[in-house]
């Protein structure tokens, strides 16, 4: 495999983060909000995977070249967990309020 410039990957990751922020700020449906969050998460995982193999890291004694991938594994686990809890909240919200619109669920009390 030939090398891949840093700029390309950073561009992609930044773009995904921007999309994620855009989605979080504009979407009112709770599930869309979760999806937007997942896009941002994936951008982070992507960055971890890429920079794991970064040359400076490989030469450093304290840094294992696969640490980034290991962290990515953990982050994927966390993201999946977050989706599960998020969906549980969606279900609870739907049952109690009859809506999945976050703009309508403005109080924590029932």
């Amino acid at each position: 495999m030939t090398t891949l410039p840093v700029g390309d990957l950073v561009a992609l990751a930044s773009g995904l983060v921007a999309i994620s922020i855009f989605g979080i700020l504009t979407r009112r449906n709770f599930i869309l909000l979760l999806i937007a969050l997942e896009i941002g998460m994936n951008a982070a995982i992507l960055t971890f995977v890429y920079f794991a193999a970064f040359p400076q890291c490989v030469t450093a004694a304290t840094c294992h070249p696969l640490t980034g991938q290991a962290i990515a594994v953990v982050v994927i686990g966390l993201a999946a967990t977050e989706v599960a809890v998020g969906l549980a909240i969606v279900l609870a919200l739907h049952r109690i309020r009859g809506t999945t619109n976050v703009a309508e669920a403005t109080t924590l009390q029932l």
Binding site: I21, I24, L25, R27, R28, V102, A103, A105, T106, T107
Partner: peptide
């Protein structure tokens, strides 16, 4: 303090 999640997200950003 609107209670709308998106607003809070905007503050975070």
């Amino acid at each position: 303090q609107s209670g709308v999640v998106s607003d809070y997200a905007a503050y975070v950003v």
